[in-house]
């Protein structure tokens, strides 16, 4: 029996087999639509299943080469990309600036072109200068570029894993209040999270000393209609920001970027801005405490809070591998999705 039917314009509930994704590079989340972020988060949950298997290996990216190029120190981000690539069966090569030709004075662009000529499919780059991955993306004809942190500008893969962690724990991002606490101005994690969280409909509250607020990003938001951060709140009193928060994101105080005297002393900073057990007692009982790491325990977060029942810091690390697997998978698909 053969029923031939005219194709219908819409098929009820038929899930799309292809993913909403049309990117060659991952530079920052301001370039991500909500659909694209959801595509990453959905793919990440499937990837996380693979990490929990006995055999943590799937053949998906066999024959693809991933290069990590780090001009700044890193443990979790670099290893996370390496692990993500290896679980997907890609070949991963790690380069750090100290042992590369950068030490002999080769320019960033020449290093990148050299690596592309060695048939890298994805180049993961971390650089102390904001914008370095954009330079890479502009000049590389074949390879995909992933920003693994550039200066004080952006760290999109961290923000995606933060969004994934919140969504996994709370089931959604829409309508949640997320307090980002501490050195927001120097934090590329916070900046990417601002884009990602607001795009997903979360309500962001920035909390920290006024000298460490990202006033450049917030400029004009009260007067400009449609400003991307129009709904972002700034709260200069930590104890006022805590009681309503669903999520607290403590940020590392970037001691290496504190030469201009934004804070009087570490001790005073810890007294005013540390997330600790006493302050967690002001929060909702189910509040999530996050930190992108590395933590300065005793400065922005107390050891008891960092390892306490609210903390999801270790899960963030696992989720980081899953999210990076998802991104590598999406980037290594066909050049243009139809």
């Amino acid at each position: 029996m053969r029923t031939v039917q005219i194709p219908e314009a819409t098929t009820v509930g038929q899930p799309a087999e292809r993913v909403a994704w049309n990117k060659r590079h991952v530079l920052d989340l301001d370039e991500f639509s909500r659909q694209e972020m959801e595509a990453v988060l959905d793919t990440s949950s499937a990837m996380k299943d693979v990490l929990h298997r006995d055999i943590k290996k799937v053949p998906t990216l066999r024959g693809k080469s991933i290069l990590t190029l780090f001009y700044e120190s890193s443990t979790r981000t670099r290893v996370s990309f390496e692990q993500a690539g290896k679980v997907l069966s890609a070949d991963v090569i790690n380069i750090s600036s100290g042992t590369s030709s950068a030490a002999k004075g080769e320019s960033l662009l020449d290093t990148l072109l050299t690596l592309q000529s060695m048939a890298a499919d994805v180049i993961v780059i971390r650089h102390p200068s904001s914008g370095a991955p954009y330079l890479a993306a502009r000049h590389l004809g074949h390879a995909s570029v992933v920003n693994a942190g550039d200066g004080t500008h952006a760290h999109p893969t961290q923000a995606l894993l933060d969004a994934f962690t919140i969504r996994e724990k709370r089931g959604r991002l829409e309508g949640l209040r997320v307090a980002i606490v501490g050195d927001v101005a120097h934090s590329r994690v916070a900046r990417s999270n601002l884009w990602g969280l607001t795009r997903m409909g979360a309500h962001v509250v920035l909390c920290g000393p006024p000298t460490l607020m990202p006033w450049d990003l917030l400029k004009g938001r009260e007067t400009t209609p449609g400003h991307p951060f129009g709904a972002v709140e700034v709260e200069l009193d930590l104890e006022k920001a805590l009681p309503d928060a669903d999520v607290i994101m403590a940020l590392r105080l970037q001691k290496e970027r504190q030469q201009m005297g934004a804070i009087p002393s570490l001790r005073e900073y810890a007294r005013l801005w540390q997330v600790n057990t006493e302050r967690l007692a002001l929060c909702r009982p189910d509040v999530l405490l996050m930190h992108p790491g590395p933590m300065n325990e005793g400065v922005e977060i107390s050891p008891e809070a960092a390892h306490g029942p609210h903390s999801v810091v270790q899960e963030q690390v696992t989720n980081g591998v899953a999210v990076r697997m998802a991104l590598l998978y999406l980037l290594c698909g066909p050049a243009e999705s139809s």
Partner: peptide, 21 residues
Amino acid sequence: LDISLYRDDVSLRRSRVRPTD
């Protein structure tokens, strides 16, 4: 079972990865 990660045409199509359970 989701087979997206085992397909032989990863470079040709970007299939949606669904849960395996």
